[in-house]
Design a protein around this nucleic acid. Structure first.
Lengths: 236, 236
DNA sequence: GTCTATACACAGATAGAC
DNA sequence: GTCTATCTGTGTATAGAC
């Protein structure tokens, strides 16, 4: 499977993406016609991510947002009751999607080596598909209020734990070397993050998502596989 | 050498840190008594980094900054002429220091394997010593105005190029395998960044800076050394 | 050199017409 | 459902006393 196949399969379920957001936030959305809501939510979120990812969420004024989304300030407040509520939706809606898709793909594999490859590949594909959401989540996570501090880091911790579980299973079955799984998982997470945090650089160097997937898997496997069955056969 | 030795050696030169800032920004600083300036610049920068790194530079008001630094708003404006100017100082002053120290240490080594280790170690030590500055530079780099766009990414590119040069030299002398040096350098950069971007996690797991140095070197070397002369001798 | 008090702009949010 | 007009708080920056 490569990225274009993945994207098709995900796009089907993404038709439900804004519908789900509508369902979950019905109580706070004054507009009731589903079709209208879905259409405008998409405009609002795309505009919000675009402006936030340029100068930060704080710097984005509601006036700017309205202009970018093609709606007046008054209209915007029919879809969220405060700027902070909009922030919450941007923070949470994508990660629900991510977890669902990631778990679905990983659960199809059963041996740790294959699960590791699938986790890396699927996470990279997801962050490519939802790059503005991933970037936003990372850059703005720190601004979340203290009382929700428990969930601040949960995004990063989530993927790290997924990887660590796979590594620990692989060590138990003798496929992976018994290195520090916690640090290794943390390193894998850092490599995955780099794809959506500095994508401009990969674009500049014409690195495709599938090249990066292959590279990342090779890099990680050279460190943690017992015998090195990497796809690279002629190391010099 | 370990971190505590490094810190001592750098702290000596850091006595000049705020003095240098004073020298470079003399034109814009109304206060003329050097002693006073240095004392207050330190208070202002520490406060600014603390508040910015909590909620972002935009969210930090000048009122908050004055309260945290123990100075009135009026006094603050004797040290910078606008919030944007303060931003510029925070963005540039640390990186000058970093480049000077990094080049000094790397130039002492001549073979690529040793240079690679030194680059990784020194960068990690520097980011540990100046963590709030590194974090700030990364998180706020995107908000820099478009006309200075050429230097926006220069921090990340700088360390990446340093690593890549070392790798390419090592490939030429046959020490490193001929993998994609650009992607490898990018991966190393990602691992270095992770230390200051999510340091809370390493603190939680009681990972010391020297443990992380050792781990990172082992991880990178397992990928790019021709024979694997890693310090880990019993891989299973 | 540092303070307090203030000017002026712009932010988020709402009311009420259409 | 969406608009325009407006309220009110807070931001940056400065003036002038000490």
């Amino acid at each position: 499977m490569d990225y274009s196949e993945f994207k098709q399969s995900v796009n089907l379920s993404r038709q439900d993406f804004y519908r789900r957001i509508f369902m979950e936030n019905r109580a706070n959305i004054r507009v009731k016609k589903e079709e209208t809501v879905i259409k405008n939510l998409e405009k609002i979120f795309c505009a919000a991510l675009k402006l936030s990812n340029r100068n930060g969420f704080q710097a984005m004024s509601i006036r700017d947002l309205g202009r970018e989304a093609g709606l007046s300030m008054g209209a915007l407040y029919a879809y969220f009751s405060s700027k902070e509520e909009l922030f919450g939706m941007l923070q949470t809606q994508a990660q629900i999607h991510v977890r669902r898709v990631l778990e679905e793909w990983i659960s199809r594999e059963d041996n740790p080596a294959e699960r590791l490859r699938t986790a890396i590949q699927t996470h990279l594909y997801l962050s490519e598909d939802l790059q503005p959401w991933f970037y936003f989540s990372f850059m703005e996570a720190k601004t979340i209020a203290v009382d929700t501090a428990a969930s601040i880091h949960s995004n990063e911790e989530y993927i790290e734990n997924v990887i660590r579980d796979i590594l620990e299973n692989g060590v138990r079955t003798g496929i992976f070397t018994a290195r520090n799984c916690r640090l290794t998982a943390s390193a894998v997470k850092a490599l995955l993050q780099d794809w959506y945090l500095t994508r401009w650089r990969f674009a500049r160097d014409h690195i495709s998502i599938d090249q990066y997937v292959a590279f990342t898997i090779a890099f990680v496997e050279s460190f943690c596989m017992v015998e090195n069955p990497s796809s690279e056969d002629h190391p010099a």
